[in-house]
Design a protein around this nucleic acid. Structure first.
Lengths: 221, 221
DNA sequence: TCTGCAGTGAGAGCAATGCTCTCGCTCAAC
DNA sequence: GTTGAGCGAGAGCATTGCTCTCACTGCAGA
């Protein structure tokens, strides 16, 4: 089955889809997910509101596409940080990844809110987003698996509380700590971004660095 | 200045306000903050849509009132748990408070999303909500202050990263750990509620208990 | 006790939204 | 070439947040 030459129509379709997504990204960054207006997007693209339904069956589907994009973007930021520090110690790579996620979140607060805030519509489609969602976790687990520091076994009950398939090449004794660290990362970034640290944490750079190192050590780095 | 007898008008006003808030609470639980419709609220109350503006100047103001209510409700749940376990050890009280917050969140997911999810409108009014927001943190800090376990000083830079007024009667060396624990609590609950633990954490009760105890020990309990 | 005004609710109306349906045009497969 | 699917435009519907105006009514000052 040869991958046939794309017809003019097919090409126009992917181009229009990308233009819609680009406009939606802009809208998202400017007004946030809640106020993202389909009609405003189509206005920016230069077509009439009904035409967008040829490309996305509903506003929620458009948002789902943006969610997947955002998951991929944080994941790429994390992977890039990991590779940039490939020669460093596990703890240094770990902290670099944390920094990268925080930096991405601060640059793209609306996209971060979209994926790590409360689900926007009645309920977003979780199944479509699951594969993209795990990329940051994968990076963190990979780094933790290389560590050899002190690790205390939380016992079989807690070990079994984690789905084993998620962390195939990680010491099961470390899995709960890794999930807890993963949670701490996004909790801290979210609290900073959503204003929960207002009047609580003065120097967020220093505090974040401290939390990152502490979490890394708890994962045996 | 005597607190004068409330007139019929004044009484009717607080009653109507409460009826609006009650309907809004119901709506919030049923459809979530994003889909909360002012007109639907007034329909449930039995008045016409324009009348609600005599009580709340805008939809966002209504949401702000609900936000404050929600903060107070989690705070009360935390305080109640603390007092119910007043005789137990610090660590037991600590874990009880964590459990109470999680239980409240699972019973009121929409309200939880409202306060610990992404800010709903363009930007909510943070100043009105600040006093109510700190109640859970206050409880956790109070318990941590009673502990006498092992605590390692993170150093002056990290200590100074925390606003000192928030934790007046807490060992400054413990403040960063307390804030990190506070973050871990709401991060874990949020991840469970918003679906981030789907296919990751199988037994959430066990995992949560483990995280609570670990965080408590890190705070010297 | 009377008067006047502020508080209150109803109703109409405006701009905007998500979404549906129908109508032509055009590209591409047969 | 012909024909059908893909596509954009336009009108339209129900709904939303919010404003304005108009009556009515309870309360305070005279």
């Amino acid at each position: 089955m040869l991958s046939h030459m794309p017809t003019r129509r097919e090409q126009a379709r992917v181009e229009t889809t990308e233009r819609i997504l680009a406009a939606a990204r802009t809208q998202l960054a400017e007004v946030g997910a809640a106020a993202l207006s389909l009609r405003a997007v189509t206005r920016e693209v230069g077509m009439v509101s009904s035409a967008v339904y040829r490309y996305f069956p509903s506003r929620d589907e458009l948002l789902t596409a943006l969610i997947i994009e955002a998951y991929d973007a944080v994941g790429e930021a994390a992977e890039a940080a990991e590779q940039a520090d490939a020669g460093s110690t596990g703890l240094e790579r770990w902290v670099s990844v944390w920094r990268a996620v925080r930096a991405w979140a601060r640059e793209h607060p609306a996209q971060y809110a979209l994926i790590y805030g409360s689900p926007v519509p009645g309920y977003a489609a979780p199944t479509d987003t699951l594969p993209a969602a795990g990329r940051v976790a994968t990076v963190l687990v990979r780094i933790a698996a290389d560590g050899a520091g002190a690790r205390e076994d939380p016992g079989p009950a807690v070990r079994n509380a984690i789905v084993p398939e998620v962390l195939p090449d990680l010491d099961p004794a470390l899995a709960p700590a890794a999930i807890a660290a993963f949670t701490q990362l996004f909790g801290t970034v979210g609290f900073e971004l959503f204003g929960q640290y207002e009047n609580v944490v003065a120097d967020r750079d220093v505090f974040f660095e401290h939390v990152a190192r502490t979490a890394g050590r708890a994962c045996g780095l």
